[in-house]
Design a protein around this nucleic acid. Sequence first.
DNA 1: TCAAAAGTGTTAAATATACACCCATGT
DNA 2: ACATGGGTGTATATTTAACACTTTTGA
Lengths: 254, 254
Amino acid sequence: MAKCHNWFHPQLALLDIYQYLQQASEWYLPHVSVDITIIGFQEGTLKVLLLDSGEKWTLPGGYIGKEESMNDAAVRVLEDRTGLTGQYLKLFQVFGDKSRNFKEDIREMFRQQGFEWKEDLWINDRYISMAYYALVDLDQVHPTGGKMNQPHAWHDLNDLPPMWMDHAQIAQGALEQLKRDITIEQISFNLLPEEFTMPQLHRLHETILDKKLERSRFQKKMLALNLFERLPKLKEDVPHRKPYLYRIKDADDH
Amino acid sequence: MAKCHNWFHPQLALLDIYQYLQQASEWYLPHVSVDITIIGFQEGTLKVLLLDSGEKWTLPGGYIGKEESMNDAAVRVLEDRTGLTGQYLKLFQVFGDKSRNFKEDIREMFRQQGFEWKEDLWINDRYISMAYYALVDLDQVHPTGGKMNQPHAWHDLNDLPPMWMDHAQIAQGALEQLKRDITIEQISFNLLPEEFTMPQLHRLHETILDKKLERSRFQKKMLALNLFERLPKLKEDVPHRKPYLYRIKDADDH
DNA sequence: TCAAAAGTGTTAAATATACACCCATGT
DNA sequence: ACATGGGTGTATATTTAACACTTTTGA
């Protein structure tokens, strides 16, 4: 269920790996992968969930089953990594360059892990990546590392570590798409807890767009959308005047 | 070079067809196709270039070569059909449903054409469609029917004939994307001749968005963009006062 | 000379912007 | 009481919308 460059785990025996690759090439569509930029928001910065693959990091990804719809594959991969369903998830771009393969990276990884590398391995193929981004409430996520229990961590989306292939570019593309999207439709609340305050939403938008937004105007514009309903006040943990809590209005009926 | 359901031509001998299918499965990535909604504008209505495949019509399409970038494949298909390069061309959606195959349609077509149908034909597979739309100056296009010289025709985009599979849905999606796109970026002029008038552009936007746009405001907004430069007047063929001609300013340098 | 289409201007409404003011809370 | 952050109001600028007026042209 993991991606071409994420399928292994140190504990796996040699046999298991080649067995897994054999099975995968039977179950999945060849030459097509799904990569997800899972975005969270914590302590005033945007985070992205990455997997540790040795020297470099990768986006969580997977393949599309031969009997599986593309979107279902994306939902499956996201759930596998975060344990969450029903999250905001959107295909935002397709990376289809002919030279897009992980051959050299995989060879290096095999060398590091002491596996025998073969030219005709399924995962050496050229892949078209279906690039999704997902918005999650970071505090709700308990990353599992997927079925393979891979090492993983939240990284600053604006300060990415060395990443494989074009994965840094994909994550960057996700951020740019997110910037465009929140100026048109109201989706940003997916990054916040179910109950949130306007100052929180305000800081979130400033962080995503990376620019100052006038406080008064932002609040009025958001409330004028008539999408949120006000609840009693927020108490705990805030040092000064307690802001109102809001949540999305009638999320189910429309 | 043609699409799974468009690859044949009545003149082709039986041998040629199976030979072609054999070659195609060697040259192209499996399970992935490229379909293009080629949009033109004529006599106040939006047109789309369709191929005649017997009972139903299809969008022009093709496959991605194993050594070819996805976008290059789209450019190639578009040029094959229209003889044009450098047109506005954009991936707008991916259709990845698991049940997306042409099995029954192909069987019916084979029956009509008197070919022997086989269960394991390459073209019976499930396909993920990379859906592009292209904007062309209809008067510049001399549709060739592609390398296969298939029958083809311009159809009204708002009054589509019976089409294969989800091709009507794809064309509809292209139109909806175009509506969204022209409200944000100025791309509509790609549907007009190189030199055009503001009334032409005005009618074009009204047609695409399917609603009245106030004439005065539209003209001022367009000119305020500072994207067009005014030329001498349009003469011939117009019945009343002759409008100014415009063209895009500095199309090359920016 | 008149109707139709094109080009431009003028005013009112709606929105965006900037900033001011008051409220609640912890120190 | 005062500094900080939150909530709201008000004056101004900008943009959008509606419509009026003038010009050109063919019938």
